[in-house]
Design a binder for these strands. Sequence first.
DNA 1: ACGGTCTGTCGAAACGCTTCGACTAAGCGC
DNA 2: GCGCTTAGTCGAAGCGTTTCGACAGACCGT
Lengths: 375, 375
Amino acid sequence: MATMHDVARLARVSVSTVSYVLTGARPISQATREKVRAAMAELDYQPHAMARGLASRRSRILGLLLPIDERGMGATETAFVTGAASAASAAGYHLVLSPVDADDLDGLRRLASQRMLDGALLMEVQLEDDRVAVLREAGVPLVLIGRTGDTTGLSYVDIDFDRTVRDAVAHLVGLGHRRIVYVNHSATTIAEGYGPALRTRDAFAAAMAEHGVEPLMIPAEDSAAGGRAALDTAFDRAPDLTAVLAMNESAVFGILSGLAGRGLTVPDDVSVVSMVTSPQVAELATPALTAMTSPGSALGRIAVEALLCHLEQDSAPIHQQLLPCTLEVRGSSGPSGRPTGDAAGDDEQETQPAAALPRDGGPRGVPARYSRGEW
Amino acid sequence: MATMHDVARLARVSVSTVSYVLTGARPISQATREKVRAAMAELDYQPHAMARGLASRRSRILGLLLPIDERGMGATETAFVTGAASAASAAGYHLVLSPVDADDLDGLRRLASQRMLDGALLMEVQLEDDRVAVLREAGVPLVLIGRTGDTTGLSYVDIDFDRTVRDAVAHLVGLGHRRIVYVNHSATTIAEGYGPALRTRDAFAAAMAEHGVEPLMIPAEDSAAGGRAALDTAFDRAPDLTAVLAMNESAVFGILSGLAGRGLTVPDDVSVVSMVTSPQVAELATPALTAMTSPGSALGRIAVEALLCHLEQDSAPIHQQLLPCTLEVRGSSGPSGRPTGDAAGDDEQETQPAAALPRDGGPRGVPARYSRGEW
DNA sequence: ACGGTCTGTCGAAACGCTTCGACTAAGCGC
DNA sequence: GCGCTTAGTCGAAGCGTTTCGACAGACCGT
């Protein structure tokens, strides 16, 4: 392997000159630069990552800290990871996958003190997450995926659950549905303070209230059986339901089969919309699921870019961004045929001032569902 | 951050002594060792990864080379990745995720010459894969996930497709099925020489022949619609079919819905077995899919361990290992009720000598399906 | 008492790069 | 023509480890 010395010798310049050609840290004349470039090409020179890292104190390695999660990653997380990896790679960085047990704070501290990571992405952030404090103390620039309860001074990217739920509810209300059941994660998951479950619960209540209809939430275990059980409960408590909004990818398949078991057709009798779902999974169902498609890989990319900003100039402002899931209408949602016969329900929607819409929301006064393509 | 110098000063020894305490490369007296340990603890010393890497010429970083694949990773690949990451982490190594376009050989060469990777795992290996040659030239120790056509001198781990198909077929034949259709990946995928599609195709033909029944393979696009289409073709060509074995996770859901559309019940009228499937996905279907569960995370772990062997002692023998998917019987397979009425079909199975079983196969002479738990 | 092997320790030279200070010319305003 | 800045280059000092050769002493058989 050729080193910088070899290049310098061949180009008849000093090592530092070669380095400056590479990094651009100081001006180098056109002529010299070309000589050096030629020498590098001839020797097939590649800078030695470790040496560069040691000297410059920057490893060009980013850490993706994922909790060791026995049940494994879902499609959304996977998309996130690959998105982050591509973005890092495109920027000339490497992404290391570090599984750290969520409560192995010592392990995390050790990892951080090895000075191998220029920065880190923290996945599956809890509302209260000690890992954040550990990494901050260790001086590791950080971007969260998800949010802690208190986000002051922290950069994060997360799904805009509020907007996502609103869009989903607007879609269903727009189709004439009034009795909509929200199937959330399990009761214990909610009790543990799992952010997405709590945020969507509240957003659902708010969105329904804005449309003047009553919210009903049912928790469900993350499984097909859990979904079926939740459906039974749902019919107990709201026999006239015409639509189900489900947070829970596994449960939604149980709901589908539960409906079929009751002799109900989707979407003619009951509409089903799945939250935070990947197209691949949505297409598995019959009919294919109308779903809020998670911005998995975009989240990954944005998180990496935000982190890189912090690295390039440490005065960079903190980056806090929410991305909504986008509605993709497939076969599992349709007009409500049954109870209420009233036109569409646009009026209720107007009662929500446009000011409540997130930054990039459509033109003022236009309800969200019209400003977003429903391909 | 404390350095080795600080530790050495505090412990009143030389830096090299500290180093020897850490690496064990030379004997150090009990007393000194404890002094040094104490100093390290007091200063909260952590070795600097880059410096160590530069001096020792070993980065303790492994690369996971995954092709940039727009349609993303499936559950099996994801499990593989997390398995590999945990194994690496447990061994004190880091795993970097390097998305490299499958035909960007220059990019790969560049990556390899940065000397950042001690070794690499190559995912989604094709039957002909130039990346292998590139990495070998660059002198990067390598373990393949999957196999090239010619595997001489190469270490790999892969799914034992042959055995997996055999076990699946044995399960169905044992249930009395005679007319079994194999739904493979798409015709173009097969034409491109995608290993798993070819290997399972051949294994299916062989397994069926051993049972004295005629094989029928239908290619299908990787989608629910593709599965439905394949099912139509299947019924055209074999109206009396009683079982479907499907390679293709997406297609299998289409097959299920296609069967329902024809008024056929699973498993009473037709049994369905899915190949290389994760439990999570299998549970989504109704009824839950009897499936060959892929050993995703075990593959990852084993691959990493094999790679580490090559690093520790470069004389290590090449490691070639196949892991079968394990049959998990759920609700989608059952006894064939319809055409043939003959007992079970054990006799045909015995014609395959046990010698063909891989290393850890059950006791000799016992058919595979009895030696494996069917929980 | 004498080489000879071990054990335990040290100092210094790498490892391959970045970066700082210094120096030389050249270009500029006045 | 004077000092001043600026462009372009060099040499050397790190960065924090590992590792090699050297060496002092202890322990051995003879």
